[in-house]
Each structure stands twice: as structure tokens, then as C-alpha cells.
């Protein structure tokens, strides 16, 4: 049974009338064209679809649209439009973090979530921060280095 679900997407109020049991992942990709939200495993294991729901990193493949009613969703598109997101993207490019690129939107969200909560993470903390994001190219070392780069380049920005 369709319902009208309203929420904030990347800072903008949006509303959609559809089946509230559709996965938030599908609605973000198909209805709101947020194609940075990638579908990998479909069961919360790989982190490729990671988004922020009320500021907390979640995997929208596990979340029915109805759970976002009245809440705030930020996708990788929303993050990369900010100064912090730009720093991460630039650090990933300069650090050679991107191989096939499929995991990268999720990695950017995880890096943003980590650095927003912990501006100066140790290497272990970075590895823990991306422990829910799988890179099938196994390029973790360069991703970790790039997150370190983003932390140092951002400096005090991460404390805001």
C-alpha cells in the first residue's frame, strides 16, 4: 500500500508516494538519481551503499523507506558537495585510493563519518572505521593512507 514519505535528502526537503517497504537504497538510486549509492551485497556486509541517516552511517539496503520518514538522509553526493567531502575526494585522488572505484562512494562516506567523529585517527582507528566497507580490489593500504592525508589536510576543519 503506497504512502507519502517525507524526509530531508542532502539538505533538501523531499517527499515521495510509493511503497514504504521499498529499500531506501532503491528509492535513492531510482527515484532520486543518487547513483553514488552503490548496491554490492544487498545484506549490509559490504558498505558500498553507505549513507548517513540522522548523521549515523547506515547501509540503506537494510532500511525500508518508511524508516526514513521525517528523518535526514545524506548520500555521498551530499557529502562531496561540502568542503569536508571535497578534501576527502581530493585526498583519495592524490593518494591513489581508487582502483575499480565501486567501493569508493561507501569509503568516502565511511571516511567522512570517521573524521567527523575523530579528527585525528590512528591507523588502527582508520582501519576500524572502514571495517564495514569491502574493497574487492583489496586496495586498503592506499585508502588508509588517503584518509590519513584527508585528516592532515583538513586539520581543524574536521573539528567543526
Amino acid at each position: 500500500m503506497d504512502k507519502t514519505i517525507s524526509f530531508k535528502l542532502n539538505g533538501e526537503a523531499v517527499s515521495i508516494t510509493t511503497d514504504p517497504l521499498r529499500r531506501l537504497l532503491d528509492v535513492l538510486r531510482e527515484d532520486f538519481k543518487c547513483h553514488g549509492v552503490k548496491e554490492g551485497c544487498s545484506e549490509g556486509e559490504c558498505g558500498a551503499c553507505s549513507v548517513l541517516l540522522n548523521g549515523e552511517m547506515v547501509t540503506p539496503c537494510l532500511i525500508p523507506l518508511g524508516a526514513a520518514d521525517g528523518q535526514e538522509v545524506v548520500t555521498v553526493e551530499g557529502i562531496t558537495a561540502t568542503e569536508k567531502g571535497d578534501i576527502i575526494v581530493q585526498a583519495f585522488a592524490d593518494g591513489g585510493a581508487v582502483q575499480c572505484g565501486f567501493c569508493i562512494p561507501g569509503m568516502v562516506v565511511a571516511a567522512y563519518y570517521l573524521l567527523s567523529r575523530n579528527p585525528n585517527p590512528t591507523e588502527d582507528e582508520i582501519r576500524l572505521g572502514i571495517s564495514g566497507n569491502l574493497c574487492r580490489c583489496t586496495g586498503y593500504d592506499l585508502i588508509v593512507e588517503s584518509i590519513k592525508l584527508a585528516a592532515s589536510r583538513g586539520g581543524d576543519i574536521w573539528k567543526k
Binding site: G44, E45, G47, S50, L53, E56, M57, V58, T59, L62, I63, A110, Y113, G129, S131, G132, N133
Partner: peptide, 9 residues
């Protein structure tokens, strides 16, 4: 339990 994204759900 699980990883970060799952622990937030």
C-alpha cells in the same frame, strides 16, 4: 556485532 553501518541499525 557486525560492522559500523550495521551497528547503527
Amino acid at each position: 556485532m557486525g560492522a559500523i553501518g550495521l551497528r547503527n541499525s
